[in-house]
Design a protein around this nucleic acid. Structure first.
Length: 178
RNA sequence: GCGCGCCGGGCAGUCGCGUGGCACCUCGGUGCCUCGAGGAAAGUCCGGACAUCGCAGGGCAGGGUGGUCACGUUGGUGACCCGGGGAAACCCGCGGGAAAGUGCCACAGAAAUACACCGCCGAUGGCCCGCUCGCGGGCACAGGCAAGGGUGAAAAGGUGCGGUAAGAGCGCACCGGCGUCGUGGUGACACGGCGGCCAGGUAAACCCCACCCGAUGCAAGACCGAGCCGAACCGCUUGUAGGCGGCCCGUCGAGGUUCAGGUAGGUCGCACAGAUGGAUGACUGCUCAAGACAGAAUCCGGCUUACAGGUGCGCUACCGCU
RNA sequence: GCCGCCAUCGUCUAGGGGACUAGGACGCUGCCCUCUCACGGCGGAAACCGGGGUUCGAAUCCCCGUGGCGGUA
């Protein structure tokens, strides 16, 4: 039932951004994540794969004051324009800045931020790539990394797939990409 | 050293973001132009606008404010007064009432609006002794005193002289307070004369007086409004109502239409910056004194706090020169 | 964004103008008890968020900051 809402939001002028807090929750809970010292990236592949990818930013007050947080968000957006090709179509992702991102920005500026994001995004592109039936490989990979929300994500995509079962079918695709 | 004020990087290039306008246009974009964070945007400490709810009028409770004058419809603004600091320019602070009443003033001290512990005296009265019969001497019983000692933040003004039995504003001088008069000032108040000494502190303790205050806050609030629920009407094999872009045929067909409230959601509220996951950035070069504190979210004032550096004007003190 | 609340030993708290030298519990620590540990007993260290103001006197009252917590979509 969340599907019709996505279409409505995507028709707005500013495509490419996550807006509703429900979307954020879905990415956090049902998506997969990877992280480094400076950033954490959550990815959730939507079913309608034709739409451009949507990105949400999260920079909490812990990171710094308003000026610092704005600075981080701007640099990240700037970097994302360069890295747009790395994003899989039809996926929602949330980029969360951590405290160390401030130091990185002070040291290396936009180039550093861009490099760090490229690092993380290249990891995500492996398992966010196949749009329609991507849920099955997700489940097995999530189990190994310890993500809690993995079983739910599989349920939304294909009802019959058993979480334990697809381990045999999927990992063949994972290995060459990594 | 002090006060008031201003600025708080600049220029160029490339790639980008948001508002508004114009043009093109496959109705979703493209191009050009324009505008696009602060002095504190901050803290949210006050006030107002605005909005919804409540409200006949008045009062109680609760809260806030409190010197004077001028100006202003009001909100308020300015100057001055008072206390403290500084050599000065100037800075900081406070602002009705303590003879309306109540409370409190720990410890110490005899006593904290009230007193006598150590003391001083004992003129007067009492007792004792002497005697020239009127005085002298003694005691410290009645009694007088509050100077000195001691305590304290504070002890019924302070210092000095006179005075006295000893003392005391009892008298006098100066100082302080109070009252009153005069002078200056619109006034708060300041200065001076005179008078008599009865007035402790605390109201950022309760309180009294005067004036002010309804509550909630843009996540206020207004409008539109899927789905679902409800109501009315039409219809349910006489293949009807209705759908299949307009019409006919054909075909699909059990629901359809309207209304009210209103959820998700949207729009407005919202602005000559103005979003709604929330717009000012990135990179490069040159330049200078090398860039601090810091980012609008309904708006407008005040207050407070943070702040590298630069700069204009005025003023104070000291030094040097003339 | 708007609106509230709070701040005392390491932690939870008492105290709301004076004998506060700030009390208690847990924790920490020294000694005693025990063969040793635990329990128990005796003792000790340890705090009023910061700066101004009112008052003779402030953890307490007033003002301004700082820090933290909560409500509201």
């Amino acid at each position: 039932m969340p599907a019709p809402r996505i279409g409505g939001a995507g028709a707005r002028r500013k495509r490419g951004r996550l807006s509703r807090s429900g979307d954020f929750d879905r990415v956090y809970r049902q998506g997969r994540s990877t992280g480094a010292r400076e950033f954490v990236v959550h990815v959730f592949p939507r079913e309608a794969s034709l739409d451009p990818p949507r990105v949400g930013l999260s920079v909490s007050k812990k990171v710094g004051d308003a000026v610092t947080r704005n600075r981080i968000k701007r640099v990240v957006r700037e970097s994302l324009q360069v890295l747009e090709a790395e994003l899989a179509a039809g996926s929602d992702l949330v980029i969360t800045a951590r405290v160390d991102a401030v130091a990185l920005d002070e040291r290396e500026g936009q180039a550093g931020i861009e490099r760090a994001l490229r690092d993380l995004l290249s990891r995500t592109s492996a398992w966010a790539g196949a749009p329609l039936d991507a849920a099955a490989p997700d489940a097995s990979a999530a189990d190994t990394t310890g993500a809690e929300a993995a079983p739910e994500s599989s349920a939304t995509a294909a009802g019959e797939v058993d979480p334990a079962d697809p381990a045999a079918a999927s990992p063949a695709e994972d290995a060459p990409d990594a």
